[in-house]
Structures are given as C-alpha cells and as structure tokens.
Amino acid sequence: MIDASASGTSAEAASRSRLRAHTAVFGALVVMGFRRWSTYRLAALAGAFANTVFGLIRANVTVAVVGVAGGVVAGYDAREVATYVWVGQALLGSIYIFQWTDLAMRIRSGDIAIDLGRPVDPQIAYLAADLGRAAFDLIPRGALPLLVGALVTGLVLPASPLPYLLGVVSLVLAVVISFACRWLVNLAGFWLLDLRGPMATYLVAVSVLNGLIVPVSWFPAWLQTLAAWTPFPSMLQTPIDVFTARAEGTQALSVIVVQSAWAAALLLLGQVVYRRGARRLVVQGG
C-alpha cells in the first residue's frame, strides 16, 4: 500500500528527473551548436577580420564626430565612443543581426515535418543550437576586434568583475531576443512562399534601431522614441552598456529586466505563432 506522501515524493522525483533530462538535452544541443560552427575555422577568422575592418571605419568616424562636436556627444567622449564601437563589433557576430532563413527553408521544403516529429520542442531545440553558435562566435569575432581596438584607439573598460558577469547575462539575453525575432520572421514562411519582404523589413529596422551605427542616445528624439518601443536596443545597445558599465548597479539590473521581458514575450509569441502555423501546414508525403 502506498500512502499519499510517498506518492507525492515519487511524482516530485519524476518531475525532477524529467527536468534533468530536458536540461541535459538542451545542454547537448548547445554543445552541438558550438561544435558545428567551430568546424569552420577559416570562415570564423574571415568573419572576425570583416568585423574588425568595419570596426576600424566606425571607430574612426565616431571619434571624428565627437571631435567636431567639441569633445563629448550625448555623454560619450572619443575613447568611450571608440570603446562602444569595438565592443559592439565584438558582440555583433554572436548576436547575429543578419539574414537567417534556416527555418523558413525547412518549412518550404517540408523538412519541418521531421522537426515536428522529434520529441523536443523545435523552438527550444533551435534556440539551444543558436546559443551554441553564439558561444563559439564570441571567441574569434569577439577577440580580434577588441585586440585591434585596444591597439588602435585604446579601450575604456571597467576594472571590477561585476560588469563582465552582468554583461554575460545581458549578452545571453540579447542572443535569445535576436533568435526569437529571427524565429518569428521565419514563421511567416508558413503563410508566405517568399520571405524576402518580411526579412528585409526586419533587417532594416534592426540595423537602424539597435545602436550598431552610433549609440541610441545620439539619435534624434523621434527616432529614440521609436527605438524604445522595439526590442532592438535590447539586442546590442544594452549588452554594450552593461559590459562597459555605462549601465551600472540597479540601472544594469533594470535594463536586464527589460531584456528578460522582451525575451520571454517574443519566445512566447513565437510558440503561439508556430503552433498556429504548424496546424495549417500540409506536407506532401513520399
């Protein structure tokens, strides 16, 4: 005879082991994502080189802007804005604001049926792989721009460890937000045969509003307001601010809370839209 308390414990134990299994699968997918991208070393080096060339141009332009404006623009002096540019270039590869159509291609070809048959939620599985990719990309694409930046313009980085720890949290959330946005844009593939329109609209919005070009605080007021209504500054401006300790202490925590809210909302929306899309999907079997 099994008494109530014992059955409660075993149910708890079962859910705990289920959680452990899910975590293990997620972890394994992250590692596989990392290993998949680490195979293409030359491509990674080429990417790091491209990020550095663009960083060099951006740093020169923004430093010149600060110089013309008399030494400070919206709270950034020359070295600070150069640091902003180089840290941004270093994180850019991981955050990935470029074209990504893997999911849409699988919807179009029907391969998505295989993803639907798997015992792992596709969104979670793709997110895990993307986090693994981001972790790998941080190594070459992060190191080279920072190294060149330190040599060419010098960097102003915080001396205490806390901004870096918070920065890692902020970076992970930025990757999640970026992934969740790309996932949503790709889901348009359930309804549209051709994704170029939505994808390009998204890329324009994200490239202009995430603070890649210049800090969002340099924007004219109307564009700052527009940016504040989107998740895009949370994708790049926020992690840079946290890493460089421009957002410190409670301010750092509050921008991380904003990021978490965007990440949760966008992932949830992605789940809902995915289920609706999958319900109307017809794949021709063979």
């Binding site: 802007v65 890329l203 070009i213 924007f219």
Partner: peptide, 23 residues
C-alpha cells in the same frame, strides 16, 4: 527591399548629422 538597403546606409549619415554640422 533593395530600397531598404539604401535606407540603412543613409540613416547612418542622417543620424550623425543630427549631432554635428560638418564632418
């Protein structure tokens, strides 16, 4: 879509010139 590509580039010049008058 291709007009969008130009928009990104020009937005950059526009934003910079909201802060300064000559570069």
């Amino acid at each position: 879509v291709s007009v969008g590509g130009t928009t990104i580039g020009f937005a950059e010049i526009y934003v910079i010139f909201t802060n300064i008058t000559t570069l």
